[in-house]
Design a protein around this nucleic acid. Structure first.
Length: 228
DNA sequence: CGTCTGATGGACT
DNA sequence: GTCCATCAGACGC
């Protein structure tokens, strides 16, 4: 296998692709500043089967302080505790009875908030991600959607609280990558957030990127009560 | 490639 | 009991 070797003309190895690590000061800023700044950065998932590298293309900001859409809005619980801790850590939650979603905690300690990673392009490690995402029709669908992203990277609750700024790098880390040109960054309403929090245009994505998940307006779930 | 619908279990009120 | 920061599969183009 030579997947981790230089593949062709000047392509860096997996060990160095994406450049320097982002340090804690990057995450120690308001979520609305960090969220768009994460576009184009490279998330590294280090695991036994080999590293998976993901170029971030779509995110959503959640500001627990006064954001009805945030898990932290109603206060600290056993589930969301990590969001109230220091920045630069992973907050992983389980949803819809089947899926996991990955967030990066931002804001100075004492204030809760985070950025949900909604989509990305798998740059390296597709052979590791593929078996987990059998239903993906094309490679650009491997991490097109927050739960798909977590699945492709093998992220579950066991990684909740992981320090993405640890030295040396742990299971998750972020590299500088190539920050998206602000001219091609768009923003709009967050997917799946209804009610008062739905008005905030806190979803950010790279315009024209095929890995960006299709927008879906919030739809009330069809109840299966039907008293038979 | 877009649109539509059923499914699934934990967290919280 | 009710609410989800969702997805796979089926179908049509």
């Amino acid at each position: 296998m030579s997947e981790t070797e230089t593949s062709s003309k000047g392509c860096p190895t997996a060990a160095t692709a994406g450049g320097d690590r982002l340090t804690r000061s990057f995450f120690d800023r308001p979520v609305l500043t960090v969220a768009p700044d994460l576009l184009g950065r490279v998330l590294v998932r280090d695991e036994p089967g080999g590293p998976v590298l993901l170029r971030i293309t779509e995110v959503e900001a959640y500001d627990g302080a006064d954001d009805p859409g945030s898990h932290a809005y109603r206060g600290r619980t056993a589930r969301n505790g990590v969001m109230f801790g220091p920045p630069g850590h992973a907050y992983v939650y389980f949803t819809y009875g089947m899926w996991h979603c990955l967030n990066l905690v931002c804001h100075p300690e004492g204030r809760a908030g985070g950025v949900l990673l909604r989509a990305g392009e798998v740059l390296h490690g597709t052979e590791v991600a593929r078996p987990r995402r059998v239903s993906a029709r094309r490679d650009h669908e491997l991490a097109r959607g927050p739960a798909r992203l977590a699945t492709a990277l093998g992220v579950d609750r066991s990684l909740d609280g992981t320090d993405v700024c640890a030295e040396p790098a742990g299971a998750l880390s972020v590299r500088s990558g190539t920050p998206a040109d602000p001219a091609i960054v768009r923003n709009g309403p967050r997917t799946g957030v209804s009610g008062p929090g739905g008005v905030h245009p806190w979803r950010f994505w790279i315009e024209g990127d095929r890995t960006v998940s299709p927008y879906r307006a919030h739809r009330p779930r069809n109840r299966t009560t039907a008293g038979t």
